[in-house]
Amino acid sequence: MPQIAQLADTWSSQVFWLLVFFGITFFVIGKGMVPKVMDTVAQRDGQIAADLAAAKAARDAADEQEEAWRVKENENRAAAQAIVAKAKDEAAKKSEKKLAAAQKRLDKKLAEAEVRIDEARTAALAEVESVATEAAQDIVKTLAGVSVTKPVAAKAVKEQMAHG
């Protein structure tokens, strides 16, 4: 086993060169280069974290704006609905008033017309009576040769008409 057989001859050289080369490795690579590599990693991690934070902030701001927009939108919609309702209300009131006026006018016209009809009917009845009276006088004179006075004839006619 050379490790033991050569120990006496080689240990000093082994230890010396190991210290030399491991020393170089430690001081040049470990102390000199590794911190820079890790620094780069840390920088990148920082950059990523910062970017993520910025993105999150932007998203939050966007959410906030959307929320504000939504609130405003809701307000606008409510206002619009109020205006529409008011207009509808007004229109309904107006049309109701108009309808009422028209109804009144119609009622009045109807009443007048009924009055006129009544008058016309009364006049017509009076006419029929007078005509019937004259006719009755004529018929009696012709058939019986009796001259009947007007009031008598009228009375008889009225009786007959009342009987129907």
Binding site: T10, S12, S13, W17, F21, I24, T25
Partner: peptide
């Protein structure tokens, strides 16, 4: 003390150089 530059020391040197080159390649700091 004997400090002969042996094949063992040679491979320590090679290890150090290869390791140096390896880490140097990681120093571009992109």
């Amino acid at each position: 003390y004997n400090i002969a530059f042996t094949n063992s020391a040679m491979w320590m040197l090679i290890t150090t150089v290869v390791l140096f080159i390896f880490v140097l390649g990681g120093m571009r700091r992109q």
